[in-house]
Nucleic acid binder design. Structure first.
Lengths: 201, 201
DNA sequence: GTCTATACGCGGATAGAC
DNA sequence: GTCTATCCGCGTATAGAC
């Protein structure tokens, strides 16, 4: 059943050019969009808001992206790339347990550093629906839970990986911890995440 | 003893009528809104969509709610009430460790049962921002982390409670586990949540 | 590449008939 | 309580000048 990637041309095509090489102007737009999406949600963010944040007009934005959907896609992929970079680093580690340690630490850093963004974006309904059948995303997630659990795509490993990433991502944007300084949040988060994985203190 | 909304805060209040007694027609609107918010996000859900889902016109909806914001508030409070009910049950338990067990089990059930809704709604940027300074919400969360940690509002307890609720809520709507049957998801989730809390297997 | 101007529909919200 | 009709602003998107 290798219908993988063989996109039917009759489709509205969903806009997945899978073409991450953007220029400087495009990257400024993407960066602004990410912040706004995190604050207002994808649906609550207009092109005017993005254009204003960048300091240009809507028409200028449309010169770089044909549709809003393309910006959403680019923003989601940009955040996904951060996660992928963390996985790359972890996979370079020689032994399994060390790889898990590095991965967890990186993900915690990433989440705290970017607070709401990484998390809010990757949990936005629009983006979740998009990623649910997005091959590159699924591959990243596959690598992620292999690293975390040392196993393949068995259900237990998937639930575990989903919980840990949701826990880290969701915790940093939780109102309960909004007033905690980054460092306190980071260390506590790391401690608890390690415990979740049965890593030594 | 649900004391939700019983507060006479001298707030600017914006829209917080704190009046949870809704009639049947209003409840049908709220139920439809919750599903749509979960699927499209608050910002991505229009009053027309809600009206269509209920099977009436926008004007009819406006007869029951003066503004969209009121529907958002009602939806969020409805989901919060589910959580509060779980806490009520847990607090009725005579001893601490039993209370935690009951609470975790209830929260897991709730999350799985409602899959995306509970979680997506409570993590929507619009709602998160609203709840961040919402007294009834903060009181529910306070009771929650007291139950979970046996302690007061110390930072560690807050991070732990934030992580656990985020883990459970986020995991059920994660694309990684989208194809798992409810029962498998529920049992694995419960197992891991209990482990996170150091509860015996 | 960025602007002004504009098309066009949909969003929230209201008036008033039944 | 629900409808039709309507207001107005904002949303996405495009055309064309500089």
């Amino acid at each position: 059943m290798s219908t993988l990637g063989r996109v039917a041309s009759a489709e509205p095509a969903a806009v997945d050019p899978a073409a991450p090489p953007y220029n400087a102007a495009q990257n400024r737009i993407i960066a602004a969009a990410i912040e706004l999406f995190a604050e207002h949600g994808v649906g609550g963010t207009s092109l005017s808001m993005i254009a204003d944040a960048v300091g240009v007009t809507k028409a200028a934005v449309y010169h770089h992206f044909k549709m809003k959907e393309e910006i959403v896609l680019a923003a989601a992929q940009a955040e996904l790339a951060n996660l992928e970079a963390a996985i790359d680093t972890a996979e370079a580690e020689p032994n399994r347990s060390r790889a898990r340690e590095v991965l967890v630490a990186r993900i915690v850093d990433l989440a705290v550093e970017r607070r709401r963004m990484e998390s809010t974006l990757l949990s936005d309904p629009v983006i979740v629906r998009f990623f649910a059948h997005h091959e590159p995303y699924l591959r990243v997630m596959d690598r992620l839970y292999r690293l975390l659990t040392g196993e393949g795509a068995v259900p237990d490993a998937r639930v575990s990986a989903a919980m840990l990433t949701a826990a880290i991502g969701g915790a940093v944007m939780h109102p309960l911890v909004a007033d905690l300084p980054d460092e306190a949040l980071r260390s506590q988060l790391l401690h608890l995440a390690r415990r979740f994985l049965d890593l030594p203190d």
